[in-house]
Design a protein around this nucleic acid. Structure first.
Lengths: 131, 131
DNA sequence: CAGTATCCTCATCGATACTG
DNA sequence: CAGTATCGATGAGGATACTG
């Protein structure tokens, strides 16, 4: 799920069936959404706006650096808005945009799928590994 | 339960809140599904069973190695079934399992989201970069 | 045909230190 | 408080060669 790429052609699925669109678009989305923290940040913002330190507290394990990078990407893509309040000490709040809200729906679907099928997947793994 | 009420933190998914499940499950799924090729392979199998070389042809840019690795993971997780036909030359066919089919639904939703919002995201990026 | 086996590169991420 | 700067480890993924 690397971000910086694709001189490659990748014309997968054009025409053949529109179910998933072209591979480039799907990969772009996955590159954004499939990294280690993005969906977790989006999910954490589902309750409304939070400031930087609150986000960090609610996402155990995320480093300051990765939270910053993830938020910058989300902001750049118009999925999250960033509001700086002119105060001392500084207060910066992040909030999902409307577009980010639609992504949230997907992340919930993905999360639900994860919960529902986790046991099945782990059973399959155990069986596979048993050989 | 999309709480719109409390600014109170919906702390990090410790298995309690169902909206996104716990972070670990979500990350597991993303680790599986969010890599460079998995969803593309799943999507390619939507039409039914295909053999190794057919998959490779339909997914431009994928290396033999990555196709093999991706298929092994999917097989291990019970998302794809592998059938070896006792012939010469060998013929191996891959097909989505029922579980894999449910993942396909998600990949379609993700693909649709990608198509629908790609222009918006790129516009947001352009605007962001213009500063 | 359908894979393994190696080698190698480069991006991702974590840790740490520093700053407006 | 909310970042930036820098460094180093890890590992995903590509290229290539070989095999049952």
């Amino acid at each position: 799920m690397t971000t910086a790429e694709s001189p490659a052609p990748i014309t997968a699925y054009e025409g053949s069936c529109s179910a998933v669109g072209d591979g480039r678009a799907v990969r772009d989305v996955l590159a954004r959404v499939g990294d280690k923290w993005t969906l977790l940040v989006v999910a954490t913002l589902r309750g409304g706006r939070l400031r930087f330190s609150e986000l960090q507290r609610h996402i155990p394990g995320i480093s300051q650096r990765m939270l910053t990078l993830t938020l910058r990407q989300l902001e750049r893509d118009g999925l999250v808005s960033r509001t700086v309040h002119a105060e001392v000490p500084p207060r910066v709040e992040y909030e999902l945009t409307d577009l980010g809200g639609t992504l949230l729906q997907l992340s919930i679907a993905l999360g639900d799928w994860a919960i529902e099928n986790r046991a099945r997947i782990e059973a399959a793994r155990a069986e596979y590994d048993a050989r």
